[in-house]
Structures are given as C-alpha cells and as structure tokens.
Amino acid sequence: TTVVVGNKKYTFDNPEAAEKFAKKVAKKLGATVHKTNGTFKVK
C-alpha cells in the first residue's frame, strides 16, 4: 500500500498502517486523505 505525500512516496505492507500514517500526516498538514486504487494521497 502506497501513501503519497506531495512528491514523496511511502510504502507499507499493511494497509491499516498506511491509512493511519496518511491520516496522521494529513492532520498535521491540515490536508485530506484521498484513496485511489489502494493508494492513499494526502493533499
């Protein structure tokens, strides 16, 4: 599962961990999490 934050990509074996990370980053940046085909995008 990939999490994309700006131009950085983070890969997780565990989708739950990926989602948690994405939400944490989004909260910090005041952004939102978008899920597309198993990829979480923070923007």
Rank of each mutant, 00 (worst) to 15 (best):
Ala26Asp: 01
Thr39Phe: 14
Lys28Ser: 08
Asn37Gln: 06
Lys20Tyr: 12
Leu29Thr: 05
Ala22Gly: 02
Ala26Asn: 01
Phe40Val: 06
Val4Gly: 03
Lys28Thr: 08
Lys9Val: 13
Gly30Arg: 06
Gly6Lys: 06
Pro15Trp: 09
Ala18Cys: 02
Asn37Gly: 12
Ala31Leu: 14
Lys9Ala: 10
Val4Pro: 00
Thr32Ile: 09
Val33Gly: 01
Leu29Arg: 04
Asn7Gln: 10
Val5Ile: 11
Val4Ile: 14
Gly6Leu: 09
Lys23Tyr: 15
Lys9Met: 12
Lys27Cys: 07
Lys24Ser: 10
Thr36Trp: 08
Asn14Gln: 07
Lys27Leu: 12
Glu16Val: 12
Thr11His: 12
Phe21Ala: 02
Phe21Arg: 00
Val25Asn: 02
Val25Leu: 12
Asn37Cys: 09
Glu19Arg: 08
Lys20His: 09
Ala31Asp: 03
Gly38Pro: 03
Val33Trp: 06
Lys43Ser: 14
Lys23Val: 13
Thr2Gln: 10
Pro15Val: 11
Pro15Ala: 12
Lys41Gln: 15
Val42Thr: 03
Val25Arg: 04
Phe21Gly: 00
Val3Gly: 00
Thr11Asn: 10
Gly38Tyr: 04
Phe21His: 02
Leu29Trp: 08
Gly38Met: 05
Asn37Pro: 06
Asp13Asn: 10
Gly30Leu: 04
Lys41Tyr: 15
Glu16Gln: 12
His34Glu: 15
Phe12Ser: 00
Thr1Ile: 09
Tyr10Trp: 14
Lys35Asp: 05
Val25Asp: 00
Val33Lys: 01
Asp13Ser: 14
Phe40Tyr: 10
Ala22Tyr: 02
Asn7Pro: 08
Val42Gln: 01
Lys8Phe: 11
Lys20Arg: 13
Ala17Thr: 12
Lys43Ala: 14
Phe21Tyr: 06
Lys35Leu: 13
Val3Trp: 01
Lys41Asp: 14
Lys8Tyr: 11
Val25Thr: 06
Gly30Met: 05
Asn7Ile: 11
Gly30Phe: 05
Lys43Asn: 11
Lys9Arg: 13
Lys24Gly: 08
Asp13Phe: 10
Gly6Phe: 15
Asn7Gly: 07
Thr11Ser: 10
Asp13Met: 12
Lys28Leu: 12
